Amino acid sequence: MNQLSPNRPRASDQMWLDAALDLLVEAGVDAVKVMPLAKQLGLTRTGFYHHFRDREALLDAMIARWEDKNTGNLIDRCDAYAETICEAMFNLQDCWVDWDLFDAPLDNAIRHWARTDADLKQRLDQADNRRKTAIVAMFQRFGYEADDAEIRAMTILYTQAGYIAMEIAEAPADRIARVPAYVRLFTGQDPSRNEVERFRARHGF
Protein backbone atom coordinates (compact mmCIF):
# COMPACT_ATOMS: atom_id res chain seq x y z
CA MET A 1 0.00 0.00 0.00
CA ASN A 2 1.28 3.47 -0.90
CA GLN A 3 1.83 5.78 2.03
CA LEU A 4 1.60 9.53 2.08
CA SER A 5 4.85 11.42 2.30
CA PRO A 6 5.20 12.96 5.79
CA ASN A 7 5.48 16.36 4.08
CA ARG A 8 2.35 15.91 1.95
CA PRO A 9 -1.01 16.90 3.45
CA ARG A 10 -3.79 14.34 3.62
CA ALA A 11 -6.20 15.28 0.87
CA SER A 12 -9.90 15.95 1.48
CA ASP A 13 -12.86 17.42 -0.36
CA GLN A 14 -12.69 20.36 2.05
CA MET A 15 -9.05 21.05 1.24
CA TRP A 16 -9.65 21.19 -2.50
CA LEU A 17 -12.80 23.28 -2.05
CA ASP A 18 -11.18 25.79 0.30
CA ALA A 19 -8.28 26.26 -2.10
CA ALA A 20 -10.64 26.69 -5.06
CA LEU A 21 -12.66 29.33 -3.24
CA ASP A 22 -9.51 31.23 -2.29
CA LEU A 23 -8.42 31.17 -5.93
CA LEU A 24 -11.86 32.32 -7.08
CA VAL A 25 -11.67 35.35 -4.80
CA GLU A 26 -8.08 36.16 -5.78
CA ALA A 27 -8.20 35.63 -9.54
CA GLY A 28 -11.69 34.78 -10.77
CA VAL A 29 -13.34 31.59 -11.96
CA ASP A 30 -11.13 31.18 -15.05
CA ALA A 31 -8.16 30.65 -12.72
CA VAL A 32 -9.86 27.78 -10.89
CA LYS A 33 -8.29 24.80 -12.63
CA VAL A 34 -7.17 21.44 -11.39
CA MET A 35 -3.44 21.67 -12.09
CA PRO A 36 -2.84 25.04 -10.37
CA LEU A 37 -4.86 23.82 -7.37
CA ALA A 38 -2.87 20.60 -7.17
CA LYS A 39 0.39 22.53 -7.33
CA GLN A 40 -0.76 24.97 -4.67
CA LEU A 41 -1.76 22.12 -2.35
CA GLY A 42 1.28 19.98 -3.03
CA LEU A 43 -0.95 17.19 -4.31
CA THR A 44 -1.24 15.29 -7.57
CA ARG A 45 -3.65 16.20 -10.34
CA THR A 46 -4.88 12.61 -10.34
CA GLY A 47 -5.73 12.90 -6.65
CA PHE A 48 -8.31 15.58 -7.44
CA TYR A 49 -10.51 13.01 -9.16
CA HIS A 50 -10.81 10.99 -5.96
CA HIS A 51 -12.80 13.91 -4.54
CA PHE A 52 -14.60 15.52 -7.49
CA ARG A 53 -15.84 14.00 -10.73
CA ASP A 54 -14.44 16.89 -12.76
CA ARG A 55 -13.91 20.65 -12.67
CA GLU A 56 -17.64 21.28 -13.13
CA ALA A 57 -18.38 19.27 -10.00
CA LEU A 58 -15.90 21.43 -8.11
CA LEU A 59 -17.54 24.61 -9.43
CA ASP A 60 -20.94 23.30 -8.34
CA ALA A 61 -19.57 22.61 -4.86
CA MET A 62 -18.18 26.15 -4.70
CA ILE A 63 -21.57 27.65 -5.53
CA ALA A 64 -23.28 25.38 -3.00
CA ARG A 65 -20.83 26.50 -0.30
CA TRP A 66 -21.56 30.16 -1.10
CA GLU A 67 -25.32 29.58 -0.99
CA ASP A 68 -25.17 27.67 2.29
CA LYS A 69 -22.85 30.13 4.01
CA ASN A 70 -23.87 33.57 2.82
CA THR A 71 -27.56 33.17 2.01
CA GLY A 72 -28.22 30.44 4.57
CA ASN A 73 -26.62 32.34 7.45
CA LEU A 74 -28.30 35.61 6.49
CA ILE A 75 -31.70 33.93 6.58
CA ASP A 76 -30.88 32.27 9.91
CA ARG A 77 -29.94 35.64 11.43
CA CYS A 78 -33.20 37.16 10.19
CA ASP A 79 -35.12 34.29 11.80
CA ALA A 80 -33.18 34.44 15.09
CA TYR A 81 -35.07 35.27 18.29
CA ALA A 82 -35.46 38.98 18.99
CA GLU A 83 -37.77 40.94 21.25
CA THR A 84 -37.59 44.16 19.21
CA ILE A 85 -36.91 45.13 15.62
CA CYS A 86 -33.66 46.74 16.75
CA GLU A 87 -32.50 43.50 18.32
CA ALA A 88 -33.47 41.68 15.13
CA MET A 89 -31.50 44.19 13.07
CA PHE A 90 -28.44 43.70 15.27
CA ASN A 91 -28.80 39.96 14.61
CA LEU A 92 -28.70 40.63 10.88
CA GLN A 93 -25.78 43.04 11.25
CA ASP A 94 -23.77 40.14 12.68
CA CYS A 95 -23.41 38.98 9.06
CA TRP A 96 -21.56 42.11 8.04
CA VAL A 97 -18.97 41.96 10.82
CA ASP A 98 -18.40 38.19 11.17
CA TRP A 99 -16.85 36.44 8.16
CA ASP A 100 -17.74 33.08 9.68
CA LEU A 101 -21.35 34.05 8.94
CA PHE A 102 -20.97 35.94 5.66
CA ASP A 103 -17.94 36.00 3.37
CA ALA A 104 -18.06 39.37 1.60
CA PRO A 105 -15.13 38.79 -0.81
CA LEU A 106 -16.71 35.48 -1.86
CA ASP A 107 -20.04 37.21 -2.49
CA ASN A 108 -18.28 39.75 -4.68
CA ALA A 109 -16.43 37.01 -6.58
CA ILE A 110 -19.68 35.13 -7.21
CA ARG A 111 -21.28 38.29 -8.61
CA HIS A 112 -18.36 38.81 -10.98
CA TRP A 113 -18.56 35.19 -12.09
CA ALA A 114 -22.32 35.46 -12.70
CA ARG A 115 -21.74 38.19 -15.28
CA THR A 116 -20.49 35.53 -17.70
CA ASP A 117 -22.53 32.52 -16.55
CA ALA A 118 -26.26 32.64 -17.18
CA ASP A 119 -27.04 29.65 -14.96
CA LEU A 120 -25.16 31.15 -12.04
CA LYS A 121 -26.85 34.51 -12.64
CA GLN A 122 -30.19 32.77 -12.22
CA ARG A 123 -29.05 31.20 -8.94
CA LEU A 124 -27.69 34.56 -7.79
CA ASP A 125 -31.02 36.22 -8.52
CA GLN A 126 -32.78 33.49 -6.56
CA ALA A 127 -30.38 33.94 -3.64
CA ASP A 128 -30.93 37.71 -3.64
CA ASN A 129 -34.68 37.15 -3.64
CA ARG A 130 -34.42 34.72 -0.71
CA ARG A 131 -32.36 37.26 1.22
CA LYS A 132 -34.85 40.05 0.54
CA THR A 133 -37.80 37.82 1.46
CA ALA A 134 -36.17 36.94 4.79
CA ILE A 135 -35.50 40.59 5.67
CA VAL A 136 -39.02 41.65 4.64
CA ALA A 137 -40.45 38.90 6.85
CA MET A 138 -38.27 40.09 9.73
CA PHE A 139 -39.74 43.59 9.50
CA GLN A 140 -43.28 42.32 9.09
CA ARG A 141 -42.85 40.22 12.22
CA PHE A 142 -42.59 43.50 14.11
CA GLY A 143 -45.61 45.14 12.49
CA TYR A 144 -44.16 46.94 9.47
CA GLU A 145 -46.42 47.15 6.44
CA ALA A 146 -45.41 45.07 3.42
CA ASP A 147 -44.39 47.99 1.19
CA ASP A 148 -42.44 49.67 3.98
CA ALA A 149 -40.73 46.39 4.88
CA GLU A 150 -39.70 45.81 1.27
CA ILE A 151 -38.17 49.29 0.87
CA ARG A 152 -36.22 48.86 4.11
CA ALA A 153 -35.01 45.42 3.00
CA MET A 154 -33.85 46.76 -0.34
CA THR A 155 -32.04 49.64 1.36
CA ILE A 156 -30.19 47.21 3.63
CA LEU A 157 -29.19 44.89 0.80
CA TYR A 158 -28.13 47.66 -1.57
CA THR A 159 -26.10 49.37 1.16
CA GLN A 160 -24.22 46.17 1.89
CA ALA A 161 -23.78 45.42 -1.81
CA GLY A 162 -22.15 48.84 -2.12
CA TYR A 163 -19.80 48.10 0.76
CA ILE A 164 -18.76 44.87 -0.93
CA ALA A 165 -18.47 46.17 -4.49
CA MET A 166 -16.45 49.20 -3.40
CA GLU A 167 -14.21 46.98 -1.26
CA ILE A 168 -14.46 49.39 1.64
CA ALA A 169 -11.48 49.06 3.98
CA GLU A 170 -12.85 49.72 7.43
CA ALA A 171 -11.33 48.90 10.81
CA PRO A 172 -13.53 46.46 12.74
CA ALA A 173 -13.85 48.87 15.66
CA ASP A 174 -15.06 51.63 13.32
CA ARG A 175 -17.66 49.36 11.69
CA ILE A 176 -18.93 48.15 15.05
CA ALA A 177 -19.20 51.75 16.27
CA ARG A 178 -21.36 52.70 13.28
CA VAL A 179 -23.78 49.78 13.53
CA PRO A 180 -26.17 51.39 16.05
CA ALA A 181 -26.60 54.32 13.66
CA TYR A 182 -27.35 51.90 10.82
CA VAL A 183 -29.87 50.11 13.01
CA ARG A 184 -31.57 53.45 13.73
CA LEU A 185 -31.54 54.36 10.03
CA PHE A 186 -32.88 51.02 8.80
CA THR A 187 -35.57 50.55 11.45
CA GLY A 188 -36.59 54.13 12.27
CA GLN A 189 -36.21 53.28 15.96
CA ASP A 190 -33.56 53.92 18.58
CA PRO A 191 -31.85 50.79 19.90
CA SER A 192 -31.63 50.53 23.65
CA ARG A 193 -28.32 50.79 25.45
CA ASN A 194 -28.57 47.11 26.43
CA GLU A 195 -29.13 46.09 22.80
CA VAL A 196 -26.07 48.06 21.70
CA GLU A 197 -23.93 46.63 24.49
CA ARG A 198 -24.98 43.04 23.77
CA PHE A 199 -24.08 43.48 20.12
CA ARG A 200 -20.71 44.98 20.94
CA ALA A 201 -19.93 42.33 23.55
CA ARG A 202 -20.56 39.37 21.27
CA HIS A 203 -18.09 40.83 18.78
CA GLY A 204 -15.45 41.52 21.41
CA PHE A 205 -15.88 45.29 21.83
Rank of each mutant, 00 (worst) to 15 (best):
A201L: 14
I164M: 03
V196R: 08
D54N: 15
V179L: 00
I156K: 00
V136A: 02
A80I: 14
L101S: 09
A64M: 11
A11H: 02
V136N: 02
A19H: 04
A64E: 15
F102A: 10
A31E: 06
V97H: 07
T187K: 00
F139S: 04
G28A: 02
M15P: 02
T44R: 07
C95F: 01
L17F: 08
K132E: 06
R184K: 15
L157M: 04
G47P: 04
C95H: 01
I110P: 00
W113A: 03
R202A: 09
M62P: 05
T155D: 03
D60R: 12
A171I: 03
A82W: 13
I85M: 06
T159V: 06
D18G: 06
D125S: 10
L120G: 08
A20R: 04
M35D: 10
E150L: 10
Q122M: 08
D190C: 14
V136K: 01
P9S: 00
T116S: 13
L120I: 13
P191D: 15
I151R: 04
A64S: 13
R45C: 12
N129E: 14
N73W: 03
L157E: 03
R202F: 11
E56F: 03
R111I: 07
Q93I: 00
P6C: 10
I75D: 03
R8E: 14
A61H: 08
H112I: 09
I85Q: 02
